[in-house]
Amino acid sequence: MTERVSIEKKVLSENDQLASAIRADLAKRKIFAINLVSSPGSGKTSLIEKTIGALGKELKIAVVAGDVQTENDANRIIKAGGKLVRPIVTGGACHLDAKMVGKALEQIELDNVDLLIIENVGNLVCPASYDLGEAMKVVIMSTTEGDDKPLKYPAMYRRSSVAIINKIDLLGTSDFDLTAARGNASKINGDLKFFEMSTRSGTGLEAWYGWLRESVSNLKK
């Protein structure tokens, strides 16, 4: 006789458990962790390079850099002065999961680290589903993309706490409408904190650095 068994189990419960363990460990060590997400080419690696260049002396920064193939991003970050950098080559997978991040973190000396930046795979779909144990997701869009990106990828914008609009030095050279972009993102998530910047020209980066400093020091209180 056919029997129905109710199990009510989250499909990604295993990932969520690992992520919770990572979050607890990072909290114990008082490390502020962000999960950087965007489409390919929005400026995740450039932002990390700049951040390490500007804050690397006052904050101890660790980076986990995910890519589908190659360790190019990790190498760029090391070249920019990153000392605690681990690449994750997913070998085809379109997102990082908590298991991959946990393994990478085991290979980083986390003592006295202030800030952990997890650079996710460039993809606005799948990374939304995977908790990595971060304090928050930071989503980047750039002015060379459509200003309707938030409407096309709502799950990512809904789950992010901070939205960065990058490449503002190129405003006016494309049809990107800054007000529309912010409006679209706010419709999906009214709590988003915005930063407008150009990692290339440096415009707007001070506000970002200031926010990182503050977030790190809030954790130490």
């Binding site: 056919t2 029997e3 129905r4 109710s6 199990i7 009510e8 189990k9 809904r158 009214g190 709590d191």
Partner: peptide, 18 residues
């Protein structure tokens, strides 16, 4: 625009039969 999500993020196994 201050709204809490009530449903929509589900990714759950509800039951199985056999």
């Amino acid at each position: 625009s201050q709204c809490d999500l009530v449903s929509g993020q589900e990714l759950e196994i509800a039951y199985f039969e056999g």
